[in-house]
Computed example of a mutant assay.
Amino acid sequence: MFGVEPICKVLTSHGLKIATSTYYAARNRRPSLRSVRDAELKTQISRVHADNFGVYGVRKVWRQLHREGIPVARCTVARLMHGLGLQGIRRGRSDDGHQRADDLLQRDFTASRPNERWVADFTYVSTWSGIVYVAFVVDVFSRAIVGWSAATSKRAKLVLDALDMALWRRNRAGNPAGPGLIHHSDAGSQGGFNRSSQHPDLGGVRRGHGGLEFEDQRCPG
């Protein structure tokens, strides 16, 4: 409406000195190689993030790009994802309204016998058909996975099915779990394990929550 010269004069009068030649030079300047590269990478990053249902964070997007033969630094992926407002799934506090169970293990991930302490968590894997969520229960004594379940949604049934399977398998093997067993899970990024404390018919199993720092005692394989 006012043109370039009047606008530059007003800006200059307010202490922001911009010549009209500066404006035209900036408008006609070719985009830098970095900006061109960033635009290309933003398209690829957005595609990878969308193809994986928005659950991939910086590390997984970066690895997927490299698998597809698109070389890029991880810090660049982080910078561009931040600019695009993209992020992966983050663990957080459950908002399901239930009171969080106590951490009965107190960071002691050891056991003197089977069925004394079980730890549980869930993760997700990318398949050709989409994202699949997998829950599992591990006996701390043997480091064996005693129960598991898979589903395409993160509902409470996913984690409860894994616990039910563990109880069923131990009962079938003639070594049933009972009073004294502590079922310890993550604090519940999706609330599923928090709701497991409301699960009936667990034979007196005590449930506890807390972060699962189990990496120093990983299950074989």
Rank of each mutant, 00 (worst) to 15 (best):
P220K: 07
R100V: 11
C8K: 06
G211Y: 03
L16G: 00
S13G: 10
G130Q: 12
I131M: 15
T76F: 04
S149R: 09
D121C: 13
V159F: 01
R29W: 11
T152Q: 12
P200M: 06
E5C: 03
P71E: 08
F193M: 07
Y124K: 11
F214G: 08
R79F: 14
G83T: 07
S13T: 06
R170Q: 13
Q190E: 15
D186C: 05
H98M: 06
D108P: 12
R172W: 14
N28T: 04
L80F: 08
G221Y: 05
S126Q: 14
N52W: 02
M165E: 01
H183M: 02
P71M: 07
G92P: 02
V132F: 02
L181Y: 01
S46E: 09
I182E: 02
A187C: 10
A111E: 04
F141M: 15
H66W: 11
A111K: 03
E5H: 13
R169A: 08
D103H: 05
S142L: 03
C75F: 07
K17H: 13
D164R: 13
F136L: 15
Q190S: 08
H49K: 08
L181S: 08
L163W: 02
R47Y: 15
Q44D: 04
D164G: 06
L84I: 05
G178Y: 03
S149I: 03
S185N: 03
G69Q: 10
A173W: 13
W128M: 12
D161P: 06
R93I: 05
N115R: 10
R218C: 00
S112F: 01
K9Q: 11
S112Y: 02
T123I: 02
L105P: 03
V125A: 10
N194C: 05
K9I: 04
S197W: 14
G15A: 09
R172F: 13
N194I: 00
F193D: 01
I7E: 02
T22G: 15
A19M: 06
T110Q: 14
G221I: 13
R29T: 00
G88A: 04
H98T: 03
Q87F: 05
R93L: 03
V10K: 12
L84F: 13
L11K: 15
R172D: 15
N115S: 07
G88D: 06
R59P: 03
A73C: 11
V72L: 11
W168K: 06
A50H: 05
N194R: 14
G192A: 15
R29C: 04
I182N: 02
C75I: 14
V36R: 09
H49S: 00
V125D: 08
A166V: 12
E116Y: 06
R206T: 01
R47G: 11
A25M: 07
I145P: 00
R195K: 07
L41N: 06
C75Y: 01
R172E: 14
G180M: 13
D96N: 05
T123V: 06
W168G: 00
D186V: 09
A162T: 05
L16P: 01
G88F: 10
E116A: 11
V58P: 01
R107N: 10
H82C: 07
A151G: 10
L163Y: 00
V134R: 09
K154V: 13
R27W: 00
E5I: 04
S189T: 09
